[in-house]
Protein backbone atom coordinates (compact mmCIF):
# COMPACT_ATOMS: atom_id res chain seq x y z
CA UNK A 1 0.00 0.00 0.00
CA UNK A 2 1.40 3.39 -1.02
CA UNK A 3 0.75 5.80 1.84
CA UNK A 4 1.72 8.71 -0.43
CA UNK A 5 -1.05 7.97 -2.94
CA UNK A 6 -3.61 10.78 -3.29
CA UNK A 7 -6.32 8.45 -1.92
CA UNK A 8 -4.48 7.83 1.34
CA UNK A 9 -3.29 11.43 1.61
CA UNK A 10 -6.85 12.77 1.32
CA UNK A 11 -8.04 10.51 4.16
CA UNK A 12 -5.24 11.81 6.43
CA UNK A 13 -5.98 15.40 5.33
CA UNK A 14 -9.64 15.07 6.38
CA UNK A 15 -8.59 13.60 9.75
CA UNK A 16 -6.04 16.37 10.37
CA UNK A 17 -8.53 19.11 9.40
CA UNK A 18 -11.06 17.65 11.89
CA UNK A 19 -8.36 17.44 14.59
CA UNK A 20 -7.19 21.04 14.05
CA UNK A 21 -10.78 22.30 14.04
CA UNK A 22 -11.42 20.55 17.37
CA UNK A 23 -8.49 22.14 19.24
CA UNK A 24 -7.90 25.44 17.42
CA UNK A 25 -10.27 27.77 19.28
CA UNK A 26 -9.23 26.50 22.72
CA UNK A 27 -5.55 27.17 21.96
CA UNK A 28 -6.45 30.51 20.34
CA UNK A 29 -8.30 31.70 23.46
CA UNK A 30 -5.47 30.55 25.76
CA UNK A 31 -2.85 32.19 23.49
CA UNK A 32 -4.75 35.50 23.26
CA UNK A 33 -5.36 35.54 27.03
CA UNK A 34 -1.64 35.17 27.67
CA UNK A 35 -0.67 37.66 24.94
CA UNK A 36 -3.16 40.41 25.82
CA UNK A 37 -3.85 39.98 29.55
CA UNK A 38 -1.53 37.68 31.50
CA UNK A 39 1.91 38.52 30.06
CA UNK A 40 3.73 41.41 31.78
CA UNK A 41 4.52 44.75 30.16
CA UNK A 42 8.06 45.50 29.09
CA UNK A 43 10.03 47.85 31.37
CA UNK A 44 11.06 49.99 28.37
CA UNK A 45 8.39 49.49 25.71
CA UNK A 46 5.36 49.15 27.98
CA UNK A 47 2.32 47.47 26.44
CA UNK A 48 3.62 47.76 22.85
CA UNK A 49 5.63 44.60 23.52
CA UNK A 50 2.36 42.68 23.02
CA UNK A 51 2.69 43.28 19.27
CA UNK A 52 5.66 40.89 19.46
CA UNK A 53 3.22 37.99 19.97
CA UNK A 54 1.90 38.33 16.43
CA UNK A 55 4.91 40.00 14.76
CA UNK A 56 7.64 37.49 15.66
CA UNK A 57 5.69 34.26 14.86
CA UNK A 58 4.57 35.81 11.53
CA UNK A 59 8.18 36.59 10.60
CA UNK A 60 9.36 33.09 11.64
CA UNK A 61 6.62 31.48 9.57
CA UNK A 62 7.35 33.67 6.53
CA UNK A 63 11.05 32.77 6.66
CA UNK A 64 10.50 29.05 7.32
CA UNK A 65 7.97 28.64 4.52
CA UNK A 66 10.29 30.25 1.98
CA UNK A 67 13.09 27.88 3.06
CA UNK A 68 10.73 24.88 2.67
CA UNK A 69 9.62 26.18 -0.73
CA UNK A 70 13.24 26.58 -1.87
CA UNK A 71 14.15 23.01 -0.86
CA UNK A 72 10.95 21.59 -2.40
CA UNK A 73 11.43 23.51 -5.67
CA UNK A 74 14.98 22.24 -6.09
CA UNK A 75 13.95 18.64 -5.22
CA UNK A 76 11.00 18.93 -7.61
CA UNK A 77 13.29 20.21 -10.36
CA UNK A 78 15.75 17.35 -9.84
CA UNK A 79 13.41 14.43 -9.09
CA UNK A 80 10.13 15.64 -10.72
CA UNK A 81 7.99 14.69 -7.71
CA UNK A 82 4.37 15.74 -8.33
CA UNK A 83 3.52 15.90 -4.60
CA UNK A 84 6.29 18.44 -4.02
CA UNK A 85 4.90 20.69 -6.73
CA UNK A 86 1.46 20.62 -5.06
CA UNK A 87 3.13 21.26 -1.68
CA UNK A 88 4.89 24.44 -2.78
CA UNK A 89 1.81 25.64 -4.66
CA UNK A 90 -0.20 25.27 -1.43
CA UNK A 91 2.47 26.82 0.83
CA UNK A 92 3.40 29.95 -1.12
CA UNK A 93 0.23 32.04 -0.39
CA UNK A 94 0.52 31.25 3.35
CA UNK A 95 4.16 32.40 3.34
CA UNK A 96 3.23 35.59 1.51
CA UNK A 97 0.44 36.33 3.99
CA UNK A 98 2.69 35.97 7.04
CA UNK A 99 5.62 37.87 5.50
CA UNK A 100 3.20 40.72 4.73
CA UNK A 101 1.74 40.55 8.24
CA UNK A 102 5.20 40.64 9.84
CA UNK A 103 6.00 43.82 7.86
CA UNK A 104 2.69 45.51 8.72
CA UNK A 105 2.75 44.57 12.42
CA UNK A 106 6.44 45.55 12.53
CA UNK A 107 5.47 48.94 11.18
CA UNK A 108 2.73 49.26 13.81
CA UNK A 109 5.30 48.37 16.48
CA UNK A 110 7.89 50.72 14.95
CA UNK A 111 5.78 53.88 15.14
CA UNK A 112 5.46 54.05 18.96
CA UNK A 113 8.92 52.53 19.57
CA UNK A 114 11.15 54.22 16.96
CA UNK A 115 8.90 57.15 16.07
CA UNK A 116 8.54 56.07 12.44
CA UNK A 117 6.36 53.62 10.48
CA UNK A 118 9.19 52.62 8.13
CA UNK A 119 12.96 52.96 7.73
CA UNK A 120 15.08 51.61 4.91
CA UNK A 121 17.28 49.68 7.29
CA UNK A 122 18.75 46.27 6.50
CA UNK A 123 16.19 44.09 8.36
CA UNK A 124 13.09 45.86 7.09
CA UNK A 125 14.36 46.14 3.53
CA UNK A 126 15.44 42.48 3.36
CA UNK A 127 11.99 41.42 4.63
CA UNK A 128 10.41 43.53 1.90
CA UNK A 129 12.70 41.81 -0.64
CA UNK A 130 11.50 38.42 0.68
CA UNK A 131 7.91 39.51 0.14
CA UNK A 132 8.74 40.53 -3.44
CA UNK A 133 10.24 37.07 -4.05
CA UNK A 134 7.01 35.50 -2.76
CA UNK A 135 4.99 37.71 -5.13
CA UNK A 136 7.25 36.80 -8.06
CA UNK A 137 7.00 33.09 -7.18
CA UNK A 138 3.19 33.13 -6.95
CA UNK A 139 2.79 35.15 -10.16
CA UNK A 140 5.06 32.68 -11.99
CA UNK A 141 3.02 29.75 -10.66
CA UNK A 142 -0.22 31.39 -11.73
CA UNK A 143 0.55 32.99 -15.06
CA UNK A 144 3.49 31.15 -16.68
CA UNK A 145 2.09 28.97 -19.42
CA UNK A 146 5.41 27.29 -20.30
CA UNK A 147 4.91 24.19 -18.09
CA UNK A 148 8.17 22.60 -19.26
CA UNK A 149 10.36 25.46 -18.07
CA UNK A 150 8.25 26.33 -15.01
CA UNK A 151 10.24 24.13 -12.54
CA UNK A 152 13.47 25.71 -13.80
CA UNK A 153 12.11 29.24 -13.38
CA UNK A 154 10.67 28.47 -9.92
CA UNK A 155 14.02 26.98 -8.85
CA UNK A 156 15.84 30.11 -10.02
CA UNK A 157 13.45 32.39 -8.11
CA UNK A 158 13.63 30.31 -4.93
CA UNK A 159 17.45 29.96 -5.04
CA UNK A 160 17.84 33.73 -5.44
CA UNK A 161 15.22 34.25 -2.72
CA UNK A 162 16.77 31.81 -0.25
CA UNK A 163 20.09 33.72 -0.41
CA UNK A 164 18.12 36.55 1.24
CA UNK A 165 17.19 34.36 4.28
CA UNK A 166 20.61 34.49 6.03
CA UNK A 167 20.80 38.19 5.10
CA UNK A 168 17.51 38.75 6.98
CA UNK A 169 18.71 36.66 9.93
CA UNK A 170 22.10 38.36 10.34
CA UNK A 171 21.20 41.85 9.07
CA UNK A 172 20.84 43.10 12.66
CA UNK A 173 24.39 41.92 13.44
CA UNK A 174 26.12 42.88 10.17
CA UNK A 175 24.72 46.41 9.90
CA UNK A 176 23.68 49.12 12.29
CA UNK A 177 19.88 48.86 12.20
CA UNK A 178 16.88 50.37 13.96
CA UNK A 179 15.61 46.82 14.46
CA UNK A 180 16.78 45.22 17.70
CA UNK A 181 19.05 42.12 17.64
CA UNK A 182 17.47 38.68 18.18
CA UNK A 183 16.29 38.12 21.76
CA UNK A 184 15.47 34.45 21.21
CA UNK A 185 18.35 32.16 20.36
CA UNK A 186 17.73 28.49 19.65
CA UNK A 187 21.45 27.76 20.07
CA UNK A 188 22.34 29.88 23.08
CA UNK A 189 20.86 31.78 25.97
CA UNK A 190 17.78 33.86 25.16
CA UNK A 191 17.53 37.32 26.69
CA UNK A 192 13.74 37.10 27.05
CA UNK A 193 11.95 36.11 30.26
CA UNK A 194 9.84 32.94 30.27
CA UNK A 195 6.74 34.99 31.17
CA UNK A 196 7.01 36.43 27.64
CA UNK A 197 8.31 33.26 26.01
CA UNK A 198 5.18 31.26 26.99
CA UNK A 199 2.70 33.59 25.20
CA UNK A 200 5.09 33.87 22.27
CA UNK A 201 5.22 30.10 21.76
CA UNK A 202 1.47 29.77 22.38
CA UNK A 203 0.76 32.32 19.63
CA UNK A 204 3.30 30.56 17.40
CA UNK A 205 1.38 27.32 17.97
CA UNK A 206 -1.92 29.05 17.10
CA UNK A 207 -0.51 30.45 13.85
CA UNK A 208 1.17 27.13 12.97
CA UNK A 209 -2.14 25.30 13.42
CA UNK A 210 -3.79 27.91 11.20
CA UNK A 211 -1.04 27.43 8.56
CA UNK A 212 -1.53 23.65 8.71
CA UNK A 213 -5.29 24.06 8.24
CA UNK A 214 -4.92 26.35 5.20
CA UNK A 215 -2.16 24.17 3.75
CA UNK A 216 -4.25 21.00 4.06
CA UNK A 217 -7.29 22.65 2.47
CA UNK A 218 -5.21 24.02 -0.41
CA UNK A 219 -3.46 20.67 -0.90
CA UNK A 220 -6.82 18.89 -1.00
CA UNK A 221 -8.06 21.42 -3.58
CA UNK A 222 -5.03 20.69 -5.78
CA UNK A 223 -5.66 16.92 -5.56
CA UNK A 224 -9.31 17.43 -6.51
CA UNK A 225 -8.26 19.62 -9.49
CA UNK A 226 -6.05 16.77 -10.74
CA UNK A 227 -8.83 14.18 -10.26
CA UNK A 228 -11.27 16.46 -12.09
CA UNK A 229 -8.92 16.73 -15.06
CA UNK A 230 -8.41 12.96 -15.14
CA UNK A 231 -12.03 11.93 -14.59
CA UNK A 232 -12.47 10.75 -18.19
CA UNK A 233 -9.54 8.34 -17.79
CA UNK A 234 -10.91 6.74 -14.62
Amino acid sequence: MNIFSFGNIIIYIDRFIKFINSIFFVILIVGLSFALIISPIDYLQGDTVRIMYVHVPSAWIGLSIFSIIAISTILNYVFKIKNLFLLLKSLAPIGLLFTGLSIVTGSLWGKPTWGTWWAWDARLTSMLVLMLFYVLFILSLKYLKDKENLPKILSAISILGVINIPIIKYSVEWWSTLHQPASIKFLGTSSIHYSMLIPLFLMLLVLLLYCALIFLMKYKTEIIKIKKQNIKRL
Binding site: L36, I41, G46, D47, T48, V54, L101, V104, L108, Y210
Partner: peptide, 23 residues
Protein backbone atom coordinates in the same frame (compact mmCIF):
# COMPACT_ATOMS: atom_id res chain seq x y z
CA UNK B 1 -3.16 49.52 26.72
CA UNK B 2 -1.09 52.25 28.38
CA UNK B 3 -1.82 54.70 25.55
CA UNK B 4 -0.76 52.26 22.80
CA UNK B 5 -4.18 50.69 22.23
CA UNK B 6 -4.43 51.77 18.59
CA UNK B 7 -1.13 50.06 17.59
CA UNK B 8 -1.75 46.88 19.60
CA UNK B 9 -5.40 46.35 18.66
CA UNK B 10 -4.72 47.24 15.03
CA UNK B 11 -1.92 44.60 14.88
CA UNK B 12 -4.13 41.85 16.29
CA UNK B 13 -7.10 42.97 14.19
CA UNK B 14 -5.14 42.98 10.92
CA UNK B 15 -3.73 39.50 11.61
CA UNK B 16 -7.25 38.22 12.39
CA UNK B 17 -8.88 39.86 9.34
CA UNK B 18 -6.25 38.73 6.82
CA UNK B 19 -6.11 35.20 8.27
CA UNK B 20 -9.90 35.00 8.10
CA UNK B 21 -9.94 36.26 4.48
CA UNK B 22 -7.41 33.62 3.39
CA UNK B 23 -9.36 30.93 5.27
Amino acid sequence: MGGYGFYIWMSFLLVTVFCFLLY
